[in-house]
Amino acid sequence: MATVSFASQDNETFLVVGTGKDMIVNPRQFSAGFIHVYRFRDDGREIEFIHKTKVEEPPMALIQFQGRLLAGIGKTLRAYDLGLRQLLRKAQAEVAPQLIVSIQTQGSRIIVGDVQQSVTYVVYKYESNKLIPFADDSVARWTNCTAMVDYESVAGGDKFGNVWIVRCPQKASEEADEDAVGAHLQHAREYLHGTSHRVSLMTHFYTQDVPTSITKTNLVVGGQDVLLWSGVQGTVGVFIPFVSREDVDFFQSLESHMRTEDPPLAGRDHLMYRSYYVPVKGVIDGDLCERFTLLPTDKKQMIAGDLDRSVREIERKISDLRTRSAF
């Protein structure tokens, strides 16, 4: 489901809904897929059915893109414009190995999330009207949700409870934006049955809940942007970026002390737990650091002594990081 402002209709906003007929989730079966278009009436209090367009598979991802509708239909990424009787196909390309489940856009760049094979970076070339994939992942990630962190980086969650950030190589990103027609990208040599470039893993963290949505947002007026995610068990979590190297070093030291001084009841190693599928990378466990306030006084003073700070200073630093960015 998506709201789309079509440029051909004077940027009027329509409600677009993807549906499937005779659908069985597992094993995946269907007899047909449709895209329904509705017009908003009475200041959004009512909707009026316009038409529906039959497609090969039920659309799993819909989003507005440069005054058109961008739809993920099976492996195919397709751009539609609004016609009188049905949607008009404007551009398409097969960009995903299995099934497109999420789409994010920024400028002419499109990030396509595949159900089984992580994310693929796609660029739309207006002059040649082509969708060209130029970077993908070397690791199979069962993607549930994605969000663009910046122009090169994408955060995502998978079906096994991991949250990760991958980044497109700087050179590949520049090449994709330079070529106006995209001839260079179209004729680039494939690498290992994929695109010519690979994304690099920046961070990886096991959350113990299956992420269902993730977004970049601001929770405090005047605060920095954070990654807010929700899980299938009702978890709501926040990833806060560090601004200074001093904070990174401090919390890394605190986390390593907490792993030793606050072992779990079942005796499971904390580092192994957060690295359940892939070794944890670039993320400090805030939940563990916040358990510092629950430690006995003697352990607090011992950790504070190792960190060359007072107990009150450490507690204030932990609470400040939360209140400045989250709640």
Rank of each mutant, 00 (worst) to 15 (best):
185 L>I: 06
157 G>F: 03
170 Q>F: 09
289 C>M: 07
245 R>L: 08
296 P>W: 08
186 Q>K: 12
244 S>E: 14
166 V>Y: 02
121 Y>A: 09
46 E>R: 12
231 G>A: 00
99 L>C: 11
142 W>M: 13
180 A>Y: 08
210 V>K: 02
160 F>R: 06
21 K>W: 10
23 M>A: 11
60 M>Q: 00
241 P>D: 00
218 N>T: 15
250 F>P: 00
7 A>G: 03
291 R>I: 01
235 T>H: 12
173 S>W: 12
221 V>W: 05
49 F>Y: 13
158 D>F: 10
84 L>Q: 06
280 V>Y: 06
78 R>I: 05
16 V>H: 02
67 G>W: 05
246 E>C: 04
13 T>F: 08
142 W>F: 14
145 C>K: 11
152 E>K: 12
20 G>S: 09
169 P>A: 10
111 I>T: 10
172 A>M: 07
278 V>N: 15
168 C>Y: 01
119 V>F: 06
247 D>V: 04
14 F>V: 05
250 F>K: 07
37 V>I: 10
222 G>F: 00
274 R>W: 15
97 P>C: 04
157 G>S: 03
157 G>D: 09
9 Q>N: 11
48 E>G: 14
34 F>Q: 09
245 R>S: 15
3 T>L: 13
290 E>D: 10
183 A>K: 15
94 E>Y: 04
248 V>Y: 03
174 E>H: 11
301 Q>V: 11
65 F>T: 07
241 P>I: 04
4 V>W: 07
210 V>D: 07
116 Q>S: 09
51 H>V: 00
315 E>P: 06
188 A>R: 13
221 V>F: 12
303 I>M: 01
212 T>N: 07
179 D>P: 11
41 R>S: 12
63 I>N: 03
209 D>R: 01
79 A>K: 11
171 K>T: 09
76 T>F: 06
317 K>E: 10
276 Y>H: 14
162 N>D: 05
209 D>N: 07
245 R>H: 12
322 R>G: 03
227 L>T: 03
75 K>D: 08
305 G>N: 01
106 Q>S: 07
56 E>C: 01
163 V>A: 10
240 I>G: 03
48 E>P: 14
326 A>C: 01
201 L>Q: 09
141 R>M: 08
35 I>M: 02
306 D>H: 14
55 V>H: 09
8 S>T: 14
287 D>K: 13
76 T>N: 15
147 A>K: 10
32 A>I: 03
308 D>F: 03
133 P>Q: 01
236 V>A: 09
225 D>P: 06
273 Y>N: 13
103 I>Y: 08
115 V>L: 08
171 K>F: 07
118 S>N: 13
44 G>A: 00
267 G>S: 06
206 Y>W: 12
